[in-house]
Design a protein around this nucleic acid. Structure first.
Lengths: 139, 139
DNA sequence: ATAAGTACTTTGATGTTCAAAGTATATTGC
DNA sequence: GCAATATACTTTGAACATCAAAGTACTTAT
């Protein structure tokens, strides 16, 4: 007999994998690359960010990120602006177009969330939210 | 004021992103590529699978998967075996070495799960499990 | 001041991915 | 049962992503 922890582990992985597939399908559909949308998603959620920080969140080297951001600047999705107190650093910021893409993508996520928790009561939704908040806080 | 649905959406995305970073860090540490470990993870969780099915789960074309599986066959992590009823199809199956890698990786996940839910009561863990099962079922 | 450290970019090599065309098998409609 | 169509996988060549290492510019520590 498997423990609750074991089962919890596997449903978490399963959830991760399904979300991952979903994201991939949605992104391909829009004609953007996964790293590009991922970058938009992070910038939209966190606001302007330094290259270093952004690279860590995405999980690539800064070298890789530089070329990624170059492309996104050309597409007018982001701009680089100087960091006010550290002139080595650069802040990457969504343009209004970038923000639009973020909102559009976020709306799809919201729709998915609605579908996934359609059978939840309001109380259950609130509990689920609470659990996820606590889990995220531990990461 | 943001709705519960909105917040739920964002904590779900946050959870996904954190898990994604964690996975990336763990995998790089082991010297395997992300797609390789992802493949092992899926095969370990679901058992032997057809190329088509596996490609869909991972979110790549079958062409990409063929070369991925070629590599993994060379590393002796998986084998190809004929599908019993459809001779066009091929089943990809973990070798004992592949299964070992799966177990090893799964143990890391289990440890993470333990850490993330360390402050949960048994009842809360059970509820969380229930929620995730229901969410996964809707996907 | 000088040295060491940090943030970013550039570059060349390697690895990943795709789309399209190819082969083999299965299914459908006549 | 036979042709036509569909499906499962592989191969190939080109496009893209990624890294490590070296380079530039700035900052911090001694």
């Amino acid at each position: 007999m498997k423990s609750t922890e074991d089962k919890l582990n596997h449903v978490m992985v399963e959830f991760y994998e399904k979300l991952s597939s979903w994201e991939q399908a949605v992104v391909k559909d829009k004609g953007y690359s996964l790293p590009l949308v991922h970058t938009v998603e992070i910038l939209g959620g966190h606001g302007p960010m330094r290259m270093k920080e952004l690279a860590e969140k995405i999980g690539v080297t800064t070298g890789t990120l530089t070329v990624q951001i170059d492309k996104m600047v050309n597409l007018e999705l982001v701009t680089r602006k100087p960091h006010e107190s550290d002139r080595r650093s650069i802040l990457v910021e969504l343009t209004s177009q970038g923000h639009e893409l973020y909102e559009e993508h976020d709306a799809l996520h919201l729709q998915l969330t609605g579908e996934l928790t359609a059978k939840f009561s309001d109380e259950e939704r609130a509990q689920f939210l609470n659990f996820l908040q606590r889990v995220n806080a531990e990461f």
